[in-house]
């Protein structure tokens, strides 16, 4: 078969179009989440939230985008220019790139990588640099302290984010996300890997700096943390990047623990979207309902509780896998 034949070109075109659709869906869901979150928080706090632009506030996102694009793009003269511009791009791109490995339905998904999960770890690792660069380059005390806090917290929770998923990998015998989803046809991994699920959920919240793990941005203590000097769309990229991170972690939770697209009656895409939106709502609810713990407690919880728990979980999983093999 020649690779320039019509069916090959057709396959390439379809694949590329699918990739672009997935990318746009990821960005748009992250962007819409900025509005949906404010609206939900409002409703849960007995107020309306943004409801003026368009029907029930549906046009709020467009208004926000127009506004933020026309804001002054101020790069502080005392800042390290290159790192200052690079940081929001890394924050935005690194988590967005992780959508490469997520299998959405049997037919949809950008790449079928054999190292699927490891690719996500790599991108989550790169995401730390965004915060570190942003905080350091801003040459601002709040930003520096916020960046230090954020990177220390993210690193502490990234130690066991990998270990928490190794139970799933051990049960499937593969890093490939598609194999993992197919391995859950009978029983979702949330049942045998419940502790893995819990620790991954906690680590996912911590890695995306969401409440209750939002010490890096604790507004009462350090103004806005690492992005205090950012304005215009550069701030917007940090902002949307955070929501893209939420969607990503929710999609990963769905894929790894909740059976991905598997489910009765409804088509696969609907199941995937339903499960993912459930976790997204859980993220917002956590922000609405939980207070922010003290920073030292957060660090201790990660090192002294979650890390040993994941290690023991992996060991027990290993024994069970070998006993049933």
């Amino acid at each position: 078969m020649s690779w320039m034949s019509t069916d090959v070109l057709l396959a390439i075109t379809v694949g590329v179009l699918k990739a672009i659709v997935i990318l746009l869906a990821a960005v748009l869901s992250g962007a819409f989440l900025t509005v949906i979150e404010r609206r939900l928080l409002g409703l849960w706090q007995d107020r309306y939230g943004p409801n003026r632009v368009g029907i029930f506030g549906s046009g709020q996102l467009i208004a926000d985008m127009i506004k933020i694009f026309f804001k002054e793009d101020w790069i502080p003269p005392f800042a390290d220019r290159k790192l200052f511009v690079l940081a929001p791009a890394i924050a935005f791109a690194s988590l967005l790139l992780s959508f490469l490995v997520i299998p959405i339905t049997p037919g949809w998904g950008v790449a079928d990588l054999n190292i699927g999960i490891l690719f996500f770890f790599a991108m989550a690792g790169i995401n730390v640099y965004a915060v570190l660069f942003g905080g350091y380059a801003s040459a601002n005390k709040y930003a520096l302290i916020g960046a230090m806090r954020a990177s220390a917290q993210t690193l502490s929770y990234e130690v066991f984010i990998g270990l928490s998923l190794m139970g799933v990998v051990a049960m499937t015998g593969s890093f490939n996300m598609r194999d993992i989803v197919n391995g859950q046809e009978g029983l979702w991994y949330i049942v045998p890997q419940f502790f893995g699920f819990l620790t991954f959920l906690i680590a996912g919240v911590a890695v995306t700096h969401r409440a209750p793990f939002d010490q890096p941005e604790a507004e009462q203590e350090i103004a806005d943390g690492y992005h205090v000097e950012y304005s215009s769309m550069k701030f917007g990229m940090f902002f949307i990047g955070e929501y893209v991170g939420i969607v990503l972690v929710s999609a990963l939770l769905t894929t790894l623990f909740m059976g991905g697209w598997h489910g009765p009656l409804l088509p696969p895409i609907v199941w995937f979207l339903l499960k993912t939106s459930f976790f997204v709502m859980l993220f917002v609810l956590a922000r609405a309902a939980l207070p922010r713990p003290r920073y030292d407690r957060v660090m201790q919880f990660g090192w002294k509780f979650c890390l040993p728990l994941t290690l023991i979980n992996l060991l027990v999983t290993g024994v069970v896998v070998l006993l049933t093999a």
Binding site: V8, A11, I12, G15, K18, A19, L100, V110, A111
Partner: peptide, 15 residues
Amino acid sequence: LAAQLAQNWSVGVFI
């Protein structure tokens, strides 16, 4: 081959 090429192209375009 077709699926492999399509995947490589989609990853490249995505990035």
